[in-house]
Amino acid sequence: MISRKDILQVGSTQKPYGIKGEIVIRFRKAEYADIDTEYYFLEIEGIPVPFFVEEFTYSTDVTARVKLEDVDDETAAARYVNTDIYLPRDLVKLQAEQETADWDYFTGFTVIDQYGKRLGIIEEVDNSTMNVLFVVKNDQKEYLIPATEDFIEAIDEEENLIEMFLPDGLIEE
Rank of each mutant, 00 (worst) to 15 (best):
R4A: 13
I7N: 02
L8F: 09
Q9L: 06
V10F: 08
T13P: 04
Q14M: 08
K15W: 06
K15M: 01
K15E: 10
K15V: 07
P16H: 10
P16V: 07
G21K: 01
G21H: 01
I23S: 03
A30I: 03
A30K: 09
E31D: 13
E31W: 08
A33S: 11
A33G: 10
D36N: 12
D36P: 01
T37D: 05
E38G: 11
Y39S: 13
Y40P: 02
F41H: 10
L42E: 08
E43H: 08
P48T: 09
V49Q: 12
V49D: 12
V49F: 08
F51D: 08
V53G: 09
E54R: 14
E55G: 03
E55P: 04
F56Q: 06
F56C: 00
T57V: 15
T57E: 12
S59N: 14
V62P: 07
T63S: 12
A64M: 06
V66F: 06
L68R: 00
D70R: 12
E74D: 14
E74C: 10
T75G: 15
A76P: 02
R79M: 15
R79F: 15
Y80D: 05
T83L: 04
D84V: 12
R89D: 06
D90Y: 13
L94F: 14
L94Q: 13
L94C: 07
Q95D: 15
A96I: 06
E97R: 14
Q98W: 13
A101L: 12
A101E: 14
A101F: 14
D102S: 11
W103R: 03
D104S: 09
D104H: 04
Y105S: 01
Y105I: 04
F106I: 05
G108W: 03
F109Y: 15
I112S: 05
K117Y: 11
K117Q: 12
G120T: 02
G120I: 05
I122R: 06
E123S: 11
E124W: 10
E124V: 06
E124C: 10
V125F: 05
D126E: 07
D126C: 01
N127A: 10
N127G: 15
S128L: 06
F134G: 01
V135G: 01
V135D: 00
K137L: 00
N138T: 02
D139G: 08
Q140K: 13
K141P: 00
K141G: 05
Y143M: 05
Y143N: 00
I145R: 03
I145E: 04
P146T: 03
A147K: 08
T148K: 09
F151P: 02
I152T: 00
I152M: 07
I152A: 00
E153K: 06
D156P: 00
E158Q: 15
N160T: 13
N160H: 12
L161R: 15
L161D: 09
L161G: 01
E163A: 10
E163T: 15
M164R: 05
L166N: 02
P167L: 07
D168V: 13
D168R: 12
G169C: 08
G169K: 11
L170E: 04
L170D: 05
I171R: 09
I171G: 04
E172T: 14
